[in-house]
């Protein structure tokens, strides 16, 4: 399972101790403080544009697919497994494999003009709002 981080370091120490405590008898991997979604997504708006961002370190351009249908954004991809070699694991916190995430946007966007950039493991998506979703200023005339 792919894991994502959400909380600052201080809490991580406690969380790790708690994880260790519960690991023995919890089903699954016992990490119930961690979100079980990957990738975590931030969405914000500024003026006439929505922005979505996800941290997907280790995923290359060829392994990612971003699409928008109506007001639904989907991010699909694969994180490749470990490098080749006769390595043994001491610690494995980084998940690998396929992931798929759907995000329902709060308003329709102009799918034609959506742009996605992947840089240093950060996927940034710019989603211009659809014309009908933009706020319109209504002129008030004196009669």
């Amino acid at each position: 399972m792919l894991l994502s981080r959400m909380v600052p370091t201080g809490f991580n120490d406690l969380r790790r101790e708690m994880d260790r405590l519960f690991q023995d008898w919890m089903p699954g991997d016992g990490n119930f403080f961690r979100p079980s979604v990957f990738p975590a997504v931030n969405v914000w708006e500024s003026g006439d544009t929505l922005y979505a961002e996800a941290e997907i370190p280790g995923v290359t351009m060829e392994d990612i697919e971003v699409s928008v249908v109506g007001d639904e954004l989907s991010i699909k991809g694969t994180r490749k497994p470990m490098p080749e070699g006769d390595y043994t694991f001491h610690r494995q916190e980084r998940g690998t494999g396929e992931f798929c995430r759907f995000v329902t946007l709060p308003m329709p966007v102009n799918a034609e003009k959506v742009e996605a950039v992947l840089k240093d493991g950060v996927l940034s998506i710019t989603l211009p709002k659809a014309e009908e979703a933009k706020p319109k200023k209504i002129n008030v005339r004196t009669s």
Binding site: M6, A40, V43, W44, L50, V103
Partner: peptide, 8 residues
């Protein structure tokens, strides 16, 4: 910026 979803 006004955040609509903040997961990380």
């Amino acid at each position: 910026a006004q955040f609509l979803a903040c997961e990380y």
